[in-house]
Nucleic acid binder design. Structure first.
Length: 167
DNA sequence: CGCCTTTGACCCGCGC
DNA sequence: GCGCGGGTCAAAGGCG
């Protein structure tokens, strides 16, 4: 079985009303309930963590000139699933902007950003070293626009995925 | 032709 | 103060 993720502090709080995020959480919780026996269920990095103020380096004028900006809307949560594909179609359009190898993990981590203008939602997808079938998806931010297409497909994918939890 | 992926360099925070 | 680990930029190429 899988071991828990020490890096992912799990907070059993599902109070905020996030659109997709909430749907995911509720969906995941529901599925976790369905799968009941699964030790773990859903790994949720709920929002409200210490992300109140996050400094982000923004290029000011070419290289060398970086401007410090503070962000307040950084909500983050993650979940891991069993899936063959990395990209889970959640109804939004994403543009990949980076890929980096992480220490302790043999598989690289991919960084995506919502292509919608003004929407600064990011997500990163990472595959576990030990279990290639397990994919960790982390969302950061809240979409400031409606979903482009129906997320039914995503729900379908979710419904046939096994979701882990760490509590 | 426009958007997306790829990929190396760059930047930053933090620990030693 | 330096090095490492992690996140982002941006140029160039690819594909529909």
């Amino acid at each position: 079985m899988m071991e828990n993720f020490p890096n992912f502090p799990t907070t059993p709080s599902s109070s905020t009303s996030l659109s997709l995020q909430q749907m995911l959480i509720s969906r995941a919780s529901e599925l976790a309930g369905i799968h009941g026996g699964v030790s773990g269920g859903v790994t949720l990095l709920s929002d409200g963590v210490d992300l109140s103020e996050k400094k982000v380096g923004v290029p000011a004028a070419g290289r060398g000139g970086y401007e410090q900006k503070k962000k307040t809307l950084s909500r983050r949560f993650s979940f891991q699933t069993r899936s063959q594909v990395d990209i889970l179609d959640d109804g939004y359009k994403w543009r990949k902007y980076g890929q980096k190898a992480v220490k302790n993990n043999k598989f690289p981590r991919s960084y995506y950003r919502c292509t919608h203008q003004g929407c600064k939602v990011k997500k990163q997808v990472q595959r576990l070293t030990r279990d290639e079938g397990v994919v960790v998806t982390t969302y950061e931010g809240i979409h400031s626009h409606p979903i482009l297409k129906s997320a039914d497909n995503f729900e379908y994918i979710l419904s046939r995925m096994q979701i882990y939890a760490s509590y």
